Simulated scan of single mutants.
Amino acid sequence: MTIGELAARFGLATHVLRHWEEMGLLSPARRANGRRVYDESHVTTVAVIRIGKDSGLSLEQIRTLLARPGSRRAVLDEHRAALRARIAALRASLELLDHAAECPAEDFRTCPDFTAKVDAYVSSPPAGRTPAAPAFG
């Protein structure tokens, strides 16, 4: 298939596939006239790249996974730990937002339950977030 056909299959612009090729993520076959030719193995590779991007992996991390499959455990373990930390931070933020939305106090900032949640949130921030940069602010 052509670069346009492969790009269309995933709803991508062709320049994205060219960029991934420059980064070493894709290696299309070339015809005598110099045009790129893709097969079903490239469809799988693009799907892996998209899934990786959707999960928050960088293109460099994805390149490592594709180029050195034996290193996948370390890359994926590190990324999974980062995702778990983000999920914890998002849950804490959601809990604060839910309470603020449902709080019967006229000003939720004066509610003892809300201020206790804020104090707990500030005193032990999830990994990747400092008290000076709350996720709900």
Rank of each mutant, 00 (worst) to 15 (best):
R91H: 07
I87K: 09
A74N: 07
P69Y: 03
R86S: 05
R80W: 15
P69T: 02
L83H: 05
H79N: 05
R91Q: 08
R72V: 14
G70A: 14
D77T: 13
S71C: 09
L66C: 04
A74V: 14
R84N: 12
A82V: 09
R72W: 15
S71L: 10
S93H: 05
E78W: 07
L96H: 05
R68Y: 11
H79T: 02
P69Q: 08
R73Q: 15
A89M: 02
T64I: 11
L83C: 12
E78F: 10
R72T: 15
P69M: 06
R73H: 15
R86F: 04
A92G: 06
R80G: 12
G70N: 06
S93Y: 01
R63G: 08
L65V: 09
G70D: 13
H79F: 06
A88N: 04
L94Y: 12
P69F: 04
L76R: 08
L97M: 14
L97I: 15
L65G: 00
R86P: 00
R84I: 14
S71D: 11
A81C: 05
L94C: 13
R68V: 14
L66N: 01
R84M: 14
A89N: 01
L76D: 05
L90S: 04
L94P: 07
P69V: 05
T64V: 13
L76F: 12
A92N: 02
A81H: 08
R86A: 09
A74T: 13
T64M: 04
R73F: 12
A82Q: 07
R86V: 11
A74R: 09
A82R: 05
L94G: 12
E78L: 12
S93P: 00
A92E: 03
E95V: 07
V75T: 09
L90Y: 08
A81T: 10
L83Y: 08
R91M: 06
L66Y: 03
L90A: 11
R68G: 06
R63P: 03
A89G: 06
H79K: 04
R68T: 15
L96D: 00
L76V: 15
L66R: 01
L83S: 11
S71A: 12
A92I: 01
A88R: 03
R80H: 14
L66V: 08
A89K: 01
S71H: 09
I87L: 13
R72L: 14
A82C: 11
R84H: 13
R80L: 15
R73G: 11
R68S: 15
R86D: 10
A74E: 15
A92S: 03
E78C: 10
E78S: 14
L83N: 08
R86C: 08
T64W: 02
A74Q: 10
S93E: 07
R86M: 11
